[in-house]
């Protein structure tokens, strides 16, 4: 019962994030909404694991959190530089102490 209510709350929040992803005037609004959606998905997988009585879902949730983070960074890099192979950031290699 408790888990079902939490799942319902997450679905509401996910719908709101989806609204922003569809409306969002710039591409960064959409990336932000999708990143937030991914965070909620991780929580959703975790709570569904409890709801279904299958604790192995935690591994999937952990993995999804990792992929969500890498995916956000990859999409941002793609929109910033137009390709994935270019090194980003300032050239600081070799300047450390």
């Amino acid at each position: 019962m408790m888990f079902a209510a939490a799942t319902a709350a997450l679905v509401v929040a996910m719908l709101l994030a989806l609204v922003r992803a569809l409306l969002g005037p710039t591409v960064y609004d959409r990336v932000l909404a999708v990143n937030s959606f991914g965070t909620k998905t991780v929580l959703m997988i975790a709570v569904l694991g409890f709801l279904a009585g299958r604790p192995d879902f935690m591994d999937i949730a952990l993995l999804y959190a990792l992929i969500n983070f890498i995916g956000t960074l990859a999409v941002l890099k793609f929109f910033r530089y137009g390709d994935m192979a270019r090194p980003g950031g300032r050239p600081t290699a070799g300047e450390g102490d």
Binding site: L10, A13, L16, A17, T26, L32, K40, L43
Partner: peptide
Amino acid sequence: LAAGSFFIIVGAIGLVRLPDMFARMHGA
């Protein structure tokens, strides 16, 4: 769980209501 759900929904409301991308990041 209820308090967590409340803050998650507040963040999502902020994501929809706030005026621009930088402000929306606070909601997220």
